[in-house]
Design a protein around this nucleic acid. Structure first.
Length: 223
DNA sequence: ACCGGGATGTTCT
DNA sequence: GAACATCCCGGTG
């Protein structure tokens, strides 16, 4: 097997989020000793996308989306959750891919502890493995991503963020699915009919009530 | 299995 | 004030 563990180059991200999103499937997110395969993403396009944070122009919160590609855009929402995006397109394009679900590959004990520490649930029983990184806020808990990581460079760690654990995305030789699952984006109210959610169809870590195994049970899915 | 609601705080109208 | 790219719990069928 021919493993290339260097981060994906900036050119990988310098296309529209809609182009990049399906290509991110099966890539590997690495942060410290934690690693997980990307199995579900959503594209957000600033200009004409009413559900993008950048739709109404640059603000202090969404500033990173308007910056150069290959950086993390991490925001805080619902009073308690973080979500992580990968900035795409040319500088100023305001194009980003939301990471929605991961399949853990390494560092599962660390991931599990991070989730148990961050989750507000009452039960002390262990998480099902499939719930560790299945959802945009869950994966941020699992990987310890928060607003301090907003703007972090995925290609080369930026000096001003050196006190944070560097985060990378690499290609381990697994190609993206030839025919990824596709649906409308989850949780958005303004453009739910755009099929800009992509996922690895058979992967049980995919979020949503039926997960990526939709069809193995009963059939419908969001979108 | 499906649905409703509470937690919680930042951002934008 | 309302909305929010969510998660978790508890009710009901």
């Amino acid at each position: 097997m021919n493993l290339d563990l260097s981060p994906l180059p900036r050119s990988f991200y310098a296309r529209t989020a809609l182009d990049v999103a399906p290509q991110l499937l099966n890539k590997v997110l690495i942060r410290g000793r934690r690693a997980a395969r990307i199995v579900e993403v959503e594209a957000y396009e600033g200009k004409d996308d009413p559900s993008s944070h950048g739709h109404r122009g640059m603000t202090n919160r969404n500033r990173t989306m308007f910056g150069p590609p290959g950086r993390l855009y991490v925001y805080f929402t619902y009073g308690m959750h973080h979500c992580a995006n990968v900035v795409c397109g040319e500088e100023g394009a305001c194009s980003a891919v939301l990471l929605r679900a991961l399949a853990p590959l390494a560092g599962e004990p660390i991931i599990r502890r991070a989730r148990q520490a961050a989750s507000r649930r009452r039960s002390t029983s262990p998480f099902r493995a499939v719930d560790l990184c299945s959802g945009p806020a869950r994966l941020c808990q699992a990987f310890g991503l928060d607003r301090r990581d907003d703007g972090a460079d995925l290609v080369r760690a930026a000096p001003r963020l050196r006190h944070r654990l560097p985060t990378f995305i690499v290609d381990d030789g697994t190609p993206p699915p030839a025919s990824p699952g596709r649906s409308g984006r989850i949780g958005v109210t303004r453009a739910p009919n755009r099929l800009w959610r992509f996922y690895v169809a058979a992967d049980p870590n995919v979020s949503g009530s039926r997960g990526g195994a939709m069809g193995s049970r009963s059939g419908s899915r969001p979108g």
